[in-house]
Each structure stands twice: as structure tokens, then as C-alpha cells.
Amino acid sequence: MSLSELTGRWKAFSYGFLDPSAKRELRRKMIKAVAVPGCQMPYASREVPIARGWGTGGLQVTLTLVKPASVVKVIDQGADDSVNAASIRRFLSRVSGASETWDTLDATLIQSRHRIPEERLSRDQILILQVPNPEPLRGVEPNMSTARQMHADADYGRMWLQLYEQMVRSGRVMLGASYPAMVNGRHVMTPSPIPRWDVKKLHMAEHLTILSAGREKRIFAVPPHTRVEPLVFDDVPYKVEDHANLTCARSGVTGYFMNEIPQEDGSAGYEVSDSHFGIKAIDARDGGTPTVGQTWYKNGELA
């Protein structure tokens, strides 16, 4: 076997930016990630032309899956039009020829930073979450090797203790985002810093979710119809953010996850976090007929 036999034909540019060997490695790891839901699989994490920590993990997964017929949606905290989301989306379409969309219903690949869209995802869609810190045990065990051993032993006692201490100290669990969740009854994962509002959308979902941390070089997945149960005590039910009665100041929708906008008088205004969902509501109010999908939450309650 000589090097020239192993080398492919010269190309000015690899389709989808990543070279074929990077894609093959990601494919092998995605297979194992789907087979053991919620278990962090190490991978090489190649360089991509954005800084680590800005969505490189999600980007590598999307670049491996993308094809010219793909329709990509990229959101950053629910917004399609933030600089990070717009840049990643434009990069994806430039290197792959895939179409871009803001509409959750049209997308085949949805790369997201820290939100799951309000409209339900279907079985033909793949959600790719960017993960800054894939290790749910980091707060209680800084040593990665020890944390891996704890996952191997399903030893989550300190995780529970941390939750208990927060209850004792503050009267409630003091975790806004990244609420730890037990996947398939075996591995505790961090669902990436999605709000508590979104964690329940992963439980027995129709769609496949792939979570990838580029800087930390870990990939894990939640297949469709897989149990994702937030860690809660029997007598203290899981609580999502208290957004059920908030109304978006721009679109007028009520009962979805909101961004808090500080006002000049010191009070708080709210606007819906899923920006394109808000755009659809404004379009409908102005006499348009946008196609709005089924939502996970109805009147602020999980349907």
C-alpha cells in the first residue's frame, strides 16, 4: 500500500468543507452515539473556519450530513438572524449548495445553539445541538477520567446530592439551562444549555437529536422515541420556566418561551424566543396565511 494509492484525486475543495476521512470518523462515531443514547463518544474534532466554542461541534455534524438537497436552518438562542447563526448558515450553504431557510417546517437539518424550535419536529428532520460543555458531572467532578468512571458505574450520587443541596439552600433547583437528564434509563447527559422548557421536547420525540461539542471533542445523541427524564425527586416535580402567561410584545403570542427585554423604566418586556415563530404570528396578524406547525406547548402547557 503506497501513499499515492491511498490519496484521492486532487480537488480544489472538499465538498462540504470537511475532507472525506474527517467525515468517515464522524460517521463511525455517530453510529455509536445513536446506539448508546446519551453516552459521550470521543471524536477527533477537526478544524473548521470558526473558533472553537462557537458551534464547531454542531457544524462538523451538519457538514457530514449535508447534501445539495438539504434545507438548513440555523438558530442561535431561537433567532435565525443573529450574527453567529447567519454566518454558520451562509457558510453551510456556500460549501454544500444546500438551501437555507428560517422556517422550522421546511428544514431537513436544524443546527441550534441552546434552543429547540417551538414547532414540533417531524421524523424526517435531524436536530443538531451545539454543546459547550458535554459533561454533566463537571460541576461535581472536575477530573474527566473520574467522571468517565462514574458514567461507567452509573454513579450519579453526587449529581443527586448537588440537586438536593440546591433545594435545601434555595428551596428549588438552581439550574436554568443544561438541566441534567437520564437518557434511556442509563446515562445522564447534559441536554446542552437549552432551557428547562425545552428538555421535555427531547423525551420520546419523533426526531433524531445529535449533540456535538467541538471544543471538548465529544458527541452524543438522542434517537427518536427515547426516554429523556430530567433528574427530579419524587416529591418535587420538574418545573419549566414560568413563561406560560407571558405575552410577546411584538407578535402577541402567549404561552411560549420568551426572551426578557429590559425596559428603560426598569421593568421587563418580553418577546418570543423562537424568532421565526414570532414572524409567522406577525404575518398571520397582518392578514398573511403562514403555515404554522403543531407546537410542543399549547397554552403554556406541554401538549
Binding site: 484521492g8 465538498y15 462540504g16 472525506p20 456556500r94 460549501v95 449548495g97
Partner: peptide, 11 residues
């Protein structure tokens, strides 16, 4: 717009 070659499409 980059186009995938036959191998990329197959893989």
C-alpha cells in the same frame, strides 16, 4: 457552488 462527486454522493 461546490458539487459532490460520485463518491461523496454514494457515501
Amino acid at each position: 457552488t461546490p458539487l459532490p462527486d460520485a463518491e461523496e454522493i454514494r457515501d
